[in-house]
Simulated assay, not measured.
Amino acid sequence: MATATFGAGCFWGVEEAFRRLPGVLEATSGYMGGTVENPTYQQVCTDQTGHAEVVQVEYDPARITYQQLLDAFFRLHNPTTLNRQGPDFGSQYRSAIFTYDPDQEREAAETVQRLEESGAYQRPIVTQIVPAGPFWRAEEYHQRYIQKHGGASCHI
């Protein structure tokens, strides 16, 4: 089993999309990248804690590769909008890849470079690639939110 963590805007839909990939064992909504220990959703929404809404993915590398997860990540959101995804804005919605080792960091950087050179996007990719820090699991009502609420929007 291996771990990958991605910030791609509101975590509800991102969690559900990763959960559906063969080889993904678990996808958990949470927070990473900030300065407050064990933040609440209300704190993160103030855009003052420095956290991103993230999905931590536990996966079986024999069934799905990190590269396949990266490809899914870039399909799931717009990596060219700074601190914004759709109607959601603030640094908590930033595009970010949190890496756990030098191989993940290298693969993420190479993927960004390949996408930039391919012309896949009209604007520069602003996705942060940063070392993973503490992962703080989001409140239970955020876990499997799409399954519980049938595709509800990302606004509470």
Results as ranks from 00 to 15, higher is better:
45 C>L: 08
45 C>E: 00
62 A>R: 15
128 Q>L: 14
48 Q>R: 15
46 T>L: 13
31 Y>G: 04
23 G>S: 10
107 E>Y: 10
149 H>Y: 15
71 D>T: 13
128 Q>R: 06
119 G>D: 09
115 L>V: 07
115 L>Y: 01
117 E>N: 11
60 D>N: 14
150 G>D: 04
43 Q>S: 00
127 T>F: 00
128 Q>P: 03
31 Y>P: 03
1 M>Y: 14
147 Q>A: 15
57 V>I: 15
67 Q>G: 14
34 G>E: 01
82 L>V: 04
123 R>A: 13
29 S>A: 13
97 I>S: 01
116 E>S: 08
111 T>D: 10
38 N>E: 14
18 F>W: 11
84 R>Y: 14
105 E>L: 13
78 N>C: 09
150 G>V: 00
32 M>W: 08
63 R>D: 08
127 T>E: 13
32 M>A: 05
28 T>M: 10
93 Y>P: 02
12 W>R: 01
99 T>Y: 15
52 A>W: 04
15 E>F: 10
140 E>T: 00
18 F>I: 05
76 L>P: 02
2 A>C: 12
38 N>V: 01
13 G>E: 03
3 T>M: 12
82 L>P: 05
47 D>K: 03
39 P>T: 08
45 C>H: 07
41 Y>H: 09
35 T>Q: 10
51 H>E: 05
6 F>W: 01
7 G>S: 06
24 V>C: 12
137 R>Q: 15
37 E>N: 11
123 R>Y: 14
142 H>N: 09
103 D>G: 08
70 L>K: 12
2 A>W: 07
57 V>A: 08
113 Q>P: 00
112 V>S: 06
121 Y>E: 03
91 S>M: 12
86 G>M: 08
1 M>D: 12
30 G>V: 04
149 H>G: 07
150 G>W: 09
88 D>P: 09
32 M>L: 06
96 A>V: 05
105 E>D: 14
65 T>Q: 07
12 W>P: 01
31 Y>T: 01
